[in-house]
Design a protein around this nucleic acid. Structure first.
Lengths: 236, 236
DNA sequence: CGCATGATTGACAGCAGTCAAGATGTGTGG
DNA sequence: CCACACATCTTGACTGCTGTCAATCATGCG
């Protein structure tokens, strides 16, 4: 199993490196494969390095003692994860699980720290990544603490539609999305069907067709809600 | 209004600086005073720099359109805030308000960035601070998404008691704590009185005397709950 | 075709929020 | 030092959103 060099150049962490610098990183990377559903690391494990997702999908999530789960991030190809615990040399504060067949490169902790210390641009990249994660978390906290499920879903769909257009193919199971939104599949399903009844969108399997983005936005902002069966109130 | 040099040496951000480096930072700092209840910055304001709290108390919080609020952090003397937005040069993602008479030093954005770029130790300090904030947020998300109010309060009290001992004087109003725990004063008050009835603690004004730390821990972990009036079940 | 996994729908329960009233505490001025 | 006013906290009655449990329905794969 060899490392995909072309891929590495697209990873934000390495984007600024010269060819010769990349060449020096490659032999350090460990290539790992994970099956769908396999745990990559568990909360409490000591962080052995930074994980770089080459192929597949990963979720990072917290578990409560009674088995409820909250997704913190979905990781897509080219993204990295586990970087905070690797930086601190502490235990992972959350779990990571492969959502599909995945290929992952592990950059061990010590070379990772060495890169940060020797390359100021690398340090800035990490800071930017941390800052991005912090912004994600503020959004998530805002969502969990201050929004109902319909508002959370509207916000989420509009966020996706922003880059993928008004017909969205969900790239994870609805039950995973429920867990990211801080709810359960049953509740998510009910909200989807209320939105469909209100002609805000259409659901066909994992494809969501957004019919009325501005209506969704009004729900996201709390200007309207889905309490009534129709949305004649939206005419006001 | 002059800058307190002794204080500055204790700020994590500057701890490693030599005397002459500190001397160069001092003239750059703007000293600001805020009255109790005064806004320091609002969500959406462009970040003009990093805020260093010299004297007083500050809360950083999100607001929903209908006025509900979620506290993200309480800032205590010597801590800094607004560093992420200042680093990125973006709008603040949250609000900051002074909870008492406060004295705050503002380190403007450009000198802040200059310090990061020229002093690798400063860059590492910022990374460590970001990492700390990320860990705080993971705890908050875990709390909001996976715990009921009694669990959140138990966790919070045990966290405080860890450093201050078993008789805790709350340093912010109960209503602020409610907002940090993602609830409202009425609910917090009810949980306190259930805990008192279960002889886990005593409440006298803003002083909380923890009588049974291990009982609180069991609640925090979800092993027991407060649904029954007494806690004979704890004997099991 | 049949089973497994995931999604949907229904009936019901409970935690926490809302609204309103009352109690407690704190600070200020006489 | 007391009394009043205001802020904060507490308690009560009620509502409603969301979760639980269970059954049914789709979907896809061997």
């Amino acid at each position: 199993m060899s490392v995909d060099t072309t891929f590495l150049r697209k990873v934000i962490l390495f984007k600024h490196l010269t060819d010769s610098q990349i060449e020096r990183v490659i032999p350090i990377l460990e290539v790992k494969r994970f099956a769908k559903g396999q745990m990559i690391f568990k909360e409490g494990d000591t962080a052995n390095g930074v994980y770089i997702l080459n192929r597949g999908k990963v979720k990072v999530f917290k578990l409560s003692p009674d088995g409820k789960e909250q997704v913190l991030h979905f990781i897509t190809e080219g993204e990295i994860f586990g970087e905070v615990a690797a930086f601190l040399g502490e235990a992972f504060p959350a779990n990571a699980e492969s959502l599909s067949e995945s290929i992952i490169y592990l950059l061990p902790r010590l070379p990772f720290l060495k890169l940060i210390q020797e390359d100021p641009q690398m340090a800035l990249n990490i800071m930017a990544l941390f800052a991005y994660r912090l912004k994600e978390f503020v959004r998530l906290i805002d969502s969990l603490a201050l929004k109902n499920i319909a508002q959370r879903l509207s916000t989420y769909l509009l966020f996706i539609a922003e880059k993928k257009g008004n017909v969205v193919a969900l790239d994870v199971k609805k039950s995973e999305i429920a867990s990211f939104l801080g709810t359960i599949p049953e509740t998510l399903s009910r909200v989807f069907s209320k939105m469909a009844k209100a002609r805000l969108l259409k659901v066909r399997g994992n494809k969501i067709e957004i019919l009325d983005p501005s209506g969704l936005e009004k729900i996201a902002l709390g200007i309207f809600d889905l309490s009534q069966g129709d949305r004649t109130n939206l005419q006001l």
